[in-house]
């Protein structure tokens, strides 16, 4: 095996890691914010229908087509080409990030909804009856319980988004997978290069798994028999 080539390749691929992480984290942050809004919308009937339609559309289609739709498709509209957002929407970075955010929000909102449904009714009632405002009930009781319930599913979503960032290489972004593709077309050593790239993603998801196990133990000690 050509270790010099492998380590050189790994160094080269790692140059794409900042962009991968940047896209992944911003997508998660944006997606979480949007998923909160989607769940708030669900309190009204019209909002609920809209949120359901959104989730249906984004979970029912491949992320790849969502990326292409935003990057190539939106430019079909004159008002977008002449609109104030065009400086952003012509950039592959912003298009890729937008697609990742919209996609993540659909999945995260369902995860959050599951968590919210798992909050015991009695716990909320006890909070209301103690005189808390709706906001305090949300902040002190509902959200903490819901977030902790949703944590295992959410950690899967974090891994899934980190992996999904690989797809933006199809619209010319040079994150880890983009660099790997370019290197393959130069050297034709596909096996070594893609295995190197795979190792980077694998390390990332192992890290997320560890972090989430730690967070779970820390955040829901009552399920693990620990005493603070």
């Amino acid at each position: 095996m050509d270790f010099a080539f492998l380590s050189g390749m790994l160094t080269q691929l790692l140059k794409g890691l900042p962009l991968t992480l940047n896209l992944g984290m911003l997508a998660l942050a944006g997606g979480f914010g949007l998923s909160l809004i989607l769940n708030l919308m669900r309190t009204t009937r019209v909002g609920n229908a809209l949120a359901s339609a959104y989730v249906f559309a984004f979970r029912g289609t491949p992320l790849l087509i969502q990326i292409f739709m935003i990057y190539y498709g939106l430019a079909s509209f004159g008002f977008i080409r002449h609109g104030f957002l065009w400086p952003f929407l012509r950039e592959p970075y912003w298009c890729g990030l937008l697609a990742l955010i919209l996609n993540d929000a659909a999945y995260t909102s369902e995860i959050l909804r599951g968590g919210l449904r798992a909050v015991p009714r009695g716990a909320v009632e006890a909070a209301r009856v103690s005189g808390m405002t709706r906001l305090t009930v949300m902040r002190r009781i509902t959200l903490p319980i819901a977030v902790r319930q949703a944590l295992p599913a959410y950690s899967n979503e974090v891994i899934s988004i980190l992996k999904s960032t690989a797809l933006v290489s199809t619209i010319t972004l040079m994150e880890v997978t983009g660099i790997a593709r370019a290197a393959v077309s130069e050297t034709w050593r596909a096996v070594e290069i893609f295995l190197c790239a795979a190792a980077i993603y694998l390390a990332l998801s192992l890290l997320v798994t560890q972090l989430s196990a730690w967070a779970e133990r820390r955040l829901s000690p009552w399920q693990f028999g620990e005493t603070p």
Partner: peptide, 16 residues
């Protein structure tokens, strides 16, 4: 509500 205490049949303690 602030001037009342309420005790439920199922306790309804906050699990977290």
């Amino acid at each position: 509500r602030g001037h009342l205490g309420f005790v439920f049949q199922n306790f309804n303690l906050w699990p977290h």
